[in-house]
Design a binder for these strands. Structure first.
Length: 948
RNA sequence: GCGGGGGUAGCCAAGCAUGGCCAACGGCGAUAGACUCAAGAUCUAUUCCCAUAGGGGUCCGAGGGUUCAAAUCCCUUCCCCCGCACCA
């Protein structure tokens, strides 16, 4: 056999698989179907090794299931919905050099780039790349006859149908929604990945209570995150230098900063700036504070930001460190008081909340504790504010200054006060972002009101309940997610499902200009793969995919002849499609990364529950964590970021597959290192050599054969147990580590049965096939097997598992270790090794003690009678044995082997191991050579040793 | 805040559900030796501390507890990470 040349081997086998169409899947009523998918990727650009982790797990399980006799369906598709392809095309159109370099670095030609100025071409291009360069190059057993993507005509028909079903079931609803939008280009997503943004991905959308202070005919407005503190209000802060605006809203006039008015414009229906007012003009005036109906005074402040809230702040000096400091300052500022004619010497904080940590006057207390002396110490003031808020929210209780809310917990009072104020018209709600956010296009991102947003009603009680029921029945891996999913479903609220603007996706069927959103069109799709195959083969076209068609195929409604008549699809084709669906569905396993846990997986499940019959709901979910680079992201400098085809060639596909399978549990983030990848390459080299070696061994049957047979079958059994539980790493550990180690031990021990070695070698090659199919195919050539990946995995043979055979070997190993240990630390030549196995009576004693361990030392009397041994030795031996019983249990006393015989059989091995003469004798016999009387220390299964 | 995950030897990373066979899988790195002109290649051994006879000590974030026995179970505590919705 040649040396292991992964590039050549892998390419050759992939071609052979394709030429022989071994991944093509057909319905076969004789076999149990197993249907699995990975969560298809969006078209986001080139992928790297991190993305391949999930796909590899999917393929390993697909192949394992196939090799255990299931008829496996493993399709794949892509998900171009959204604007990623559009924004890439736009960048290329604009000649964005960074993007162009990126495309070229990954192998795009100038021609490709030209043509990708059209988003449709972007989709086409990446569909090709994903299929040919990623999935096929990794040797995945995907049947591409089922391939589809979400912006194709047929898929859109499917989504249209799905939304009609949701509507029928009254799971669609319309209500106002406050979402993030760019003032230039419409809705955008604000999230750390900054897909749509150029700045501010970490911003949060915050809900403020807008308090309205009566100021003559008008209202002064102030925004707060803490409506529960209204009872502590003592004054308002207004910046005398700032020019505020007066806006007309409904029939009222509100005063706020110009910036605030601009933002509010996106959230309120009619709003008009009618006048301005300088802050200075209001200083010293009185307003009526909402909620408490008390007059408070307007005071000057310089720390106000027109872009935060309304540029006016209500002051709660008892609970807000900022306000406390500012109030202190101003009370001492005689000049200022005089200028504005302020009479505020009596203005004192009003205690409103008591918390465990901060008592009733938290602001004062924390200012002292943090030693804050001025308004300038912003950082510490922020910290103080945060700490008080947290303590108050958790442990706080409203004091009796708080009217009807006295005695309530802050958590409850907060919501209730807000609600009541709004109810009474004394407050409103506004939204703002916690930091500045700028769109990709350069426009400012604000929170805007969409009055008639469409939602899927995931809050529906029945749907929630049924989904939880289903989740509890499913096989969900890992266990932590199984525990979690029901809670997630419970928490899941209505989710908007369509948006206006320039997106790729399916047109929303009930309103023009709306496109179905990306999460919403990727929930039921495993069902659609089954139909996509028939579309791909030309059996049906998109126009024929009417409502009746889907109702029939998925739900079994209508007679085929009726649907056939309506759609023009031949009746037999319809029956074929329907049978396919019935055969393959439900989906057995959906695999996806951890990012899907709170978004995709819940809606995937809930849509199935909403629309499909009980027997067609999914059975399993497998979540994997990520492959990350040092410091979080996969980066170019450390490897792993190279284009996937390059990586496949550099490390080897099987190497990478084994890396994914074995280097870490699927349920932790794994750091990528190139060194580790090369280690796995060497591992495959070693396996290659081992198989070669195994083929060449000539010899005969020996006692040690039983041990290998036993170990192999025991491990094979566990391999299946692990793999059936999707314990991929543990399965790989057995196939690539434990079993080769057993074979190596066997050879080391002088095992040499060609028949056995061939059997084990050949079975091992089948066991590695799900993980590293290419090398498995190549190695199986040794046994003239065509397509080992089409074979069945070996079944373990229970009758070959032998505790005795293994315990013999454990014994030899233990003796070997002990000798080694002694040689390590004792200064002896090590030319002659004497081993003394224990006298027979010691074994008898143990057997007797095992029968009645509870008797303890009380057994001594009987033993003295029964056993022929020196009484002092007997006593100390029993003493020790009793200790053993205590710590290890009586069962461990069992002695099942003829130690002398085992050692005699291992003589050659031990001689070779230690390059010494070995003498074996029985303790207690006369005329043995034992100058230091070691033999008396011998115990059953623990022979005494003397070395010189 | 709500919800979740985690802290294991120089590093990565198993084990924890079902306590004992755990000084703790596997790997990297390191050290020594073999092979070789040489080696980043391969193989062997060592890699918590002590120990000239198979032994002893300490150890799995920290502190307590349960138990004959705890990395594993319970309590307390410190620290890190992730998701939280229109983002695939």
């Amino acid at each position: 056999m040649e040396d292991y040349d992964h590039v050549e081997i892998e390419e050759r086998w992939r071609k052979k698989w394709e030429d022989n169409e071994i991944h093509k899947t057909k319905r076969d009523e004789e076999r149990t179907p197993f249907y699995l998918i990975f969560a298809y990727p969006g078209i986001s650009g080139f992928l790297h090794l991190g993305h391949m982790r999930c796909y590899t797990y999917t393929d390993i399980l697909a192949r394992y299931k196939e090799m255990t006799g299931f008829n496996v369906l493993f399709p794949a598709g892509t998900h171009p919905t959204g604007n990623q392809a559009i924004s890439l095309a736009k960048k290329l159109e604009e000649g964005d050099q960074k993007k162009i370099d990126y495309m070229k670095r990954n192998g795009a030609t100038q021609e490709d780039i030209e043509r990708m100025k059209d988003p449709e071409e972007v989709v086409k291009y990446f569909n090709e790349i994903y299929r040919e360069e990623y999935w096929k190059d990794f040797g995945f057993s995907i049947d591409f006859d089922y391939f589809t993507y979400t912006t194709r005509d047929d898929y859109k028909k499917f989504i249209t149908w799905q939304f009609k079903k949701l509507k029928e079931k009254e799971l669609l609803t319309q209500k106002p929604y406050f979402g993030t939008e760019c003032v230039e280009c419409g809705p955008v997503a604000v999230d750390p990945s900054e897909t749509d943004l150029s700045k501010g991905g970490n911003a949060e959308k915050q809900e403020f209570t807008l308090l309205k202070f009566e100021y003559g005919e008008r209202y002064v407005t102030a925004a707060t995150l803490r409506p529960e503190t209204v009872f502590g209000q003592t004054n308002l802060w207004v910046d005398p230098e700032m020019e505020y605006v007066i806006v007309e809203i409904k029939d009222e006039e509100w005063i706020m900063s110009n910036e605030a008015a601009d933002k509010l414009n996106y959230q309120k229906d009619r709003i008009e700036k009618i006048d301005t007012i300088k802050g200075e003009e209001m200083i010293g005036d009185k307003v009526v504070a909402p909620g408490i109906g008390r007059e408070i005074v307007i005071l000057p402040a310089s720390f106000l930001d027109p872009d935060f809230g309304t540029g006016i702040v209500t002051s709660v000096p008892s609970d807000a460190p900022y306000d406390r400091i500012a109030l202190k300052d101003i009370k001492q500022d005689e000049e200022l008081k005089e200028r504005y004619d302020l009479d505020i010497d009596d203005l004192e904080p009003i205690e409103i909340i008591e918390s465990d940590e901060w008592g009733t006057d938290p602001a004062e207390k924390i200012i002292e504790e943090l030693d804050i002396s001025s308004q300038e110490e912003e950082e510490r003031l922020e910290e103080a504010t945060e700490r008080i808020y947290r303590a108050g929210f958790h442990t706080g209780e409203m004091l009796d200054t708080c009217g009807d809310y006295s005695g309530m917990r802050v958590q409850d009072a907060k919501e209730k006060i807000k609600h009541d104020l709004i109810e009474e018209g004394k407050a409103d709600v506004i939204y703002d972002l916690s930091e500045e956010v700028i769109c990709r296009c350069g426009g400012k991102v604000v929170v805007g009101k969409i009055p008639d947003q469409w939602f899927i009603r995931y809050s529906d009680e029945e749907l929630t309940e049924k989904s939880i029921e289903q989740a509890e029945k499913m096989m969900i891996t890992p266990q932590s997610y199984a525990d979690n999913l029901p809670t997630t479903i419970e928490w899941f609220q209505d989710r908007s499902c369509a948006r206006r603007g320039n997106w790729m996706g399916t047109e929303f069927p009930f309103e023009e200009d709306w496109i179905i959103e990306a999460i919403a069109d990727s929930t039921l799709y495993p069902a659609f793969y089954v139909i996509a195959k028939h579309y791909n083969q030309g059996t049906i076209n998109a126009d024929q995919m009417t409502e009746e068609f889907f109702d029939h195929v998925f739900l079994g409604e209508y007679k085929p002849e009726k649907v056939s008549e309506k759609t023009g699809i031949a009746e037999e084709d319809l029956e074929e499609i329907r049978s396919d669906f019935e055969y393959w569905y439900p989906l057995d396993l959906n695999l996806g990364g951890k990012e899907h846990m709170t978004v995709h997986f819940p809606v995937f499940l809930m849509n199935h529950v909403a629309i499909f019959e009980e027997e067609d709901r999914p059975r399993g979910i497998f979540v994997n964590w990520w492959l990350v680079g040092k410091g979080g992201k996969i980066s170019k400098s450390k490897g792993g970021a190279e284009p996937i085809p390059d990586a496949a060639e550099k490390y080897g596909v099987d190497t990478l597959r084994l890396f994914y399978a074995h280097s870490a549990s699927p349920f932790v983030d794994k750091e990528w290192t190139e060194d580790e990848a090369f280690t796995y390459q060497k591992k495959l080299d070693a396996l290659w050599d081992l198989i070669k070696k195994v083929r060449d061994v000539k010899g005969e049957e020996k006692k040690i054969d039983d041990h290998l047979k036993s170990r192999f079958n025991r491990l094979l059994k566990r391999y299946h147990e692990f793999m059936d539980d999707y314990e991929i790493r543990k399965g790989a550990n057995i196939a690539f580590y434990n079993i080769p180690a057993e074979i190596n031990w066997y050879l080391k021990r002088g095992g040499s049965d060609p028949e056995l070695l061939n059997e084990v070698g050949e079975k091992l090659v089948r066991m590695i096939a799900p993980f590293t199919p290419h090398i498995a195919e190549e190695l199986s050539d040794n046994w003239d097997i065509d397509f080992v990946t089409q074979q069945r995995l070996p079944r373990y043979q229970e009758e070959k598992i032998s505790d005795l055979a293994e315990s013999r070997e454990d014994y030899v190993k233990k003796v070997r270790e002990d000798i080694k240990h002694i040689l390590d630390i004792a200064e002896v030549e090590g030319e002659k090794i004497y081993i003394y196995v224990a006298e027979g009576w010691k074994k008898e004693v143990l057997e007797r003690m095992k029968e009645e361990p509870e008797k303890g030392m009380g057994l001594m009397g009987e033993l003295v009678e029964e056993i022929d041994a020196p009484s002092d030795e007997l006593a100390s031996f029993v003493q020790e044995a009793l200790e053993d019983i205590k710590t290890r249990g009586a069962e461990k006393l069992h002695v099942d082997l003829d130690e002398r015989e085992v050692l005699e059989e291992s003589l050659e091995f031990l001689k070779k191991e230690f390059d010494a003469e070995i003498s074996i004798s029985k303790a207690g016999q006369d005329d043995i050579y034992d100058p230091e009387n070691r033999s008396s220390q011998s115990k059953p299964k623990r022979p005494a040793i003397y070395i010189e």
